[in-house]
């Protein structure tokens, strides 16, 4: 069920008994294991999960052990059952989480990932060196042209990565797929879960899968409406406003000089909450809080990018 679906005041939800690491909790039917873990402040890594999107449970970093299941279970999407016994801190769980983070870090540029991701990588002692030095980056568009079912076998001495040049094809935002962990969040935000535009989709297969427009055309030639909702959900900084990208390239992006200001968009009557990031009294990035009841973190092009009139160059 979608989290941002209307809240129906239906029947009273049954309470179920769930054992988490030896303690029994009574939780409402329909909760996911992750809901319970978050309620109990049990720190659980997640990458492809976000409260305002349908769980795709693709990243497999949130795995827990559930008695009776031969394999680990994704806590972000598995609903609790009465009498369920869950373990979150076993060797199997720790190993899987560590490996998932390590596999991602060895193939993707995680340097701009959310702070929590860096904390988890430290907690689980991620060591990417054992996969060898990173392999050579792909040329522009090369990863997009790979044919499903075929790949070139390397000599194994370097670790293959998704490194490739950043796609800069419009004035509003850039796509740096060298940072993409293929969490599907942007696809969901562009399509079914928010914008209903479907400008981008997952293309290709396996390690060569990419997030792409049809035939990898530039965004201005695609269905993109520049709502930027994909930017809002991207956990690794792969999608970024051009304003931020340019400053980072110029070396002027400085978080220590930044403030967050909350305000309301004035363009139309919807009244979306805006969270402005400012540096030296200039707006450098606009987001919306994901727990806001009107936006659920999503905006339109005007709210997200339409601020140049308040700060002419």
């Amino acid at each position: 069920m979608r989290r941002n679906a209307p809240v129906m005041l239906g029947g009273v939800r049954r309470l179920l008994d769930v054992d988490i690491d030896g303690t029994t909790h009574r939780v409402p039917e329909g909760s996911t294991i992750l809901d319970v873990l978050r309620d109990q402040d049990i720190d659980t890594p997640t990458l492809c999960y976000l409260g305002n999107l349908t769980p795709v449970n693709a990243c497999r970093v949130c795995m827990v052990e559930v008695d009776g299941s031969r394999v680990l279970v994704p806590s972000c999407s598995r609903r609790v059952e009465d009498g369920m016994v869950v373990k979150t801190d076993t060797d199997r769980v720790r190993h899987s989480r560590k490996m998932v983070l390590e596999l991602l870090a060895s193939s993707t540029d995680m340097s701009l990932a959310e702070d929590a991701v860096h904390r988890w990588m430290d907690d689980y002692q991620v060591d990417v060196k054992r996969y060898g030095p990173p392999g050579p980056p792909a040329g522009a568009g090369e990863r997009d042209r790979r044919q499903a079912g075929h790949h070139h076998v390397t000599d194994g001495m370097t670790a293959e990565t998704v490194a490739q040049p950043t796609k800069v094809d419009n004035e509003l935002y850039v796509r740096d797929y060298a940072r993409c962990i293929l969490c599907y969040k942007c696809v969901e935000a562009c399509g079914e879960d928010a914008q209903n535009t479907f400008a981008i989709a997952v293309a290709g297969r396996g390690f060569d899968a990419t997030i792409a427009t049809e035939f990898d055309v530039a965004l201005p030639d695609s269905a993109c409406v520049y709502c930027g909702n994909c930017i809002g959900v991207c956990p690794t900084g792969a999608l970024m406003p051009k304003s931020e990208y340019d400053m980072r390239q110029a070396g002027t992006w400085d978080e220590s000089r930044q403030d967050q200001v909350t305000t309301v968009c004035t363009f139309c009557g919807v009244g979306c909450n805006l969270e402005l990031t400012t540096q030296d009294n200039r707006i450098v990035r606009v987001d919306s809080p994901i727990d806001h009841s009107v936006t659920h973190g999503h905006l339109c092009i005007k709210g997200r990018f339409g601020y140049s009139h308040v700060q002419p160059d």
Binding site: A58, C59, M99, V100, G132, G156, A159, G206, A209
Partner: peptide, 19 residues
């Protein structure tokens, strides 16, 4: 080659295994 690419253990794990 045949991994669908959806989940990390398989998508990247099969590459690291081959290497």
């Amino acid at each position: 080659d045949e991994s669908c690419g959806q989940c990390v253990p398989c998508r990247v794990g099969t590459v690291r295994q081959e290497e």
